[in-house]
Computed example of a mutant assay.
Amino acid sequence: MKKILPLILLAGVGFLSYSCDNSSNDPVVVPNPVDHDTFPIMMDATGSFTAANNYTLISDINIQATDVVLVYKKEGNLWQQIPKTYYLDDVTGLPTARELDYNFNFNSSVVNVETKANFNQGTQMTPQETAKYLTNQTFRIVLVPADPAKKNAAKVSSNVDLSDYNAVVKYYNLDESKIKTINTH
C-alpha cells in the first residue's frame, strides 16, 4: 500500500497540473488589430440641394454595420467636417438670424447629406447664397473601419482628430490619388 500511495499522489498531481493548463484557450492579443473586412476608402460626391430632392443628397456605399463614415464639405481648397452650421448675413427683405446646417446620416448602404434651415431655402436665400451653399456642393465621404477591439463605431480612435481631414488621411494612410467619384441621387 505504501508503494501505491505515492504513485496515486503523483498521478493526481500530474492530472491537476495538466488540467489547469489553459494556454491553448488564451485569446490571441494583437497589439494593433487590423479590421480586414473594411479598409479606409475615400470618395467624392457632388450635387445640388433643391426642393425637388428635399435638400438631401443620397450616395450609395457598402460598409459593415459597425464601421464609421466621416463626411467633409469642400470649402475652396480645404475640407470642413460636417455637421456644420453657417450663419448667413442679414439681407434686407429676408428673415434675420438665418442659420443653414449641413448634416449627414448613414447606414451600411447609403449616406444622406442634408441641409436644414430656420428659413425657407427655396425662397429666402439670395442667388449668391444659393450658389455658395446649395449648388454643386462637393463632399468627401471617408469610410473607416471601427475599432474591432471595442466593438463601438463611435470610438474609432483616440489617436486621431477626426475633425482634421489631413490628420485622418495621414492616420489611415489614405491615397488621395485613388479617390472614387460617386453619384448622388
Rank of each mutant, 00 (worst) to 15 (best):
S59V: 06
Q124R: 13
K116I: 06
Y171Q: 03
I141M: 07
M43R: 15
V30S: 08
S177N: 13
I141R: 08
S23T: 13
V68E: 11
M43P: 06
H185N: 09
A51T: 12
K155W: 05
S24G: 12
V69R: 09
W79I: 01
T135F: 05
S19Y: 12
Y87S: 05
G122K: 02
T138Y: 06
I8H: 01
A149L: 13
I182F: 00
Y86H: 14
Q80R: 08
A131H: 03
V156M: 06
P33C: 05
T85P: 00
T66S: 10
L162H: 06
V69D: 12
K3C: 03
P40M: 15
V29M: 03
N107T: 02
T50W: 14
S157E: 03
Y133F: 13
L88D: 09
N166Y: 08
V68R: 11
N112M: 05
V13Y: 12
D89A: 15
K150D: 10
V160S: 15
A131V: 03
Q80W: 02
V113P: 02
P6A: 10
Q137S: 01
P31R: 07
E99W: 01
N77R: 07
N54F: 07
F39I: 13
I4S: 03
K178Y: 11
T56K: 08
L7T: 01
N22C: 00
G47C: 04
K180C: 00
G47R: 05
D26G: 04
S109Y: 14
A146S: 15
D175R: 05
E129W: 09
K150S: 13
V68L: 08
S17D: 00
K132I: 01
Y55P: 02
R98Q: 10
I61H: 08
V160W: 12
A149P: 01
M1S: 12
I8Y: 00
L57I: 14
N118C: 10
K2D: 14
D161E: 14
V169M: 07
G76M: 04
P148S: 07
V142L: 10
P83V: 04
Y172W: 15
I182S: 04
Q64H: 13
K178D: 11
D89I: 00
N112F: 07
N112A: 06
S59D: 09
A131C: 03
E114Q: 11
L78K: 14
